[in-house]
Nucleic acid binder design. Sequence first.
RNA 1: GGCGGGUUGGCGGAGAGGUUACGCAGCGGAUUGCAAAUCCGUGAAGACCGGUUCGAUUCCGGUACCCGCCUCCA
Length: 499
Amino acid sequence: MVEIRLTNSRTRRKEVFTPIDASDVRMYVCGPTVYDRAHLGNARPVVVFDMLFRLLRHVYGPDHVRYVRNFTDVDDKINAAAQARKAAGAGGSLEELIRARTEETIGWYHADMAALGALPPTAEPRATDFIGQMIAMIGILIERGHAYAAEGHVLFRVRSYRDYGALSGRSVDDMIAGARVEVAPFKEDPMDFVLWKPSDASLPGWDSPWGRGRPGWHIECSAMSHELLGDSFDIHGGGIDLQFPHHENEIAQSCCAHPEGGFARVWMHNEMLLVEGKKMSKSLGNFFTVRDLLDRGVPGEVIRFVFLSTHYGKPMDWTEKKQLEASKAIRKMAGMLGMRGTEFLTGLEEGKPLNSVVDALADDMNTHGALHALDRSTLQLAYRELDLIDIIPDIYASQRLLGFDLKGHPEAWARAIQHDETMGIVRSRAPSTKPELLVDLEVRMVQLRAEATSSKNFSAVDALKAALTAAGVEVRMSKAGVELLPGPGFDPSKLEALK
RNA sequence: GGCGGGUUGGCGGAGAGGUUACGCAGCGGAUUGCAAAUCCGUGAAGACCGGUUCGAUUCCGGUACCCGCCUCCA
């Protein structure tokens, strides 16, 4: 069994991971509030914990890992968006407008995250489906003296939980001293946080012992993780920005409501995403969504590669340059799959992931190390050229473990065809994800080139080549033929004129 | 103000107390109608100041600078 080591935010140390039950490894990750398209920052924890999910599945077996990631579909931003739509004359009740918006957002989220190669979690609970459990948990907290009702609100009594602040290394007194927020008059203590708040008629609400209202933000994760994963589970993940107050509050709620359980044993936090060295924000104009990138022609696997090239515990800077480097690296990775020709590539099946890759991942998810282990130059040092060809199925399996499936990548086929040509094998046009238009243009280019070779006038060939290059197409000409590949800046619209 | 993280070659970015990380870019070569891609080769580092050590970029302390969190946020 591979020994996995993970940095536990709670102890601030790298520890050997031992699941509570190896036949049922359980992980909970805080998911998105579904009011709008996921921005690039939202995608980082998705890829990070997808990688952990894949590693756990590899080590413990796909049927022995449960990964829960919630959807927060009750939230004031969602309410505000729905109220704005209603004010703008949209039909339907507020509840219907909210439901429509959250449904739509969840659909986008699924599509965008799938494009990044993220597996669907085992369960994706929606907060609104667990209001009953939240009310029950709040009831227990009041019973045990950890919460109190005041003016239609229910508040958690922070002073009743000794370890409050332990996760994020803060003391309640320090925080009060440095507090910048206005304190609601009905709070016993400035740090007490809301479990339940009242809703007026213009807001969605549920009946509760404390009147019609809606849950505070933190209680949903406590209620859902308890309902789906139990009193104690293995890993709780999320962005470092959630460490305080969200995760601190979750721990307080869960541990006070279910003191018999240990709640999450390992806490993992991914660091933030920056864009060109700055935090992504609308005011700086460097804010963009995953969909924006995909629509701009940046493939999902390139985004994934950039994410995986930085350790999850370090801030990751998204830059144009990294994006270009990643697309080159992806091409090289894909190219290796074609080293043995088209016939082999067509029938390529997954072998067993390389130990060097698994070991890197098992070492606190050193994804950069895993990618490095898959570099051709690294592999060439570890294996002789002939052996390298033998382990293509293992290389493929390793890539798949990292969430990349490059079997259909144009570069894999280009390499395979090149191999066939060198070996004198008749080329067979195999399925790749290359756009049809490029295949047609290849044929035309071959004809023009044949004419040019006899006439010694290459101007027509050069003109076509220039147009293709301008559209971001990579033009490769060899004695045997022409290969057109979409490059990093490929823009299909610029090819329309060449039809 | 409190808490946390960082500072490595032109750029990105690792591991390891003493041996070349690696990639990209650059440069030289092979190849090409010209290119592209590919292949071969190649130079370049460890913020600053102290300490521990036979030896530190790697451990310890301090300084400077950068970033994040403390308020919705992944």
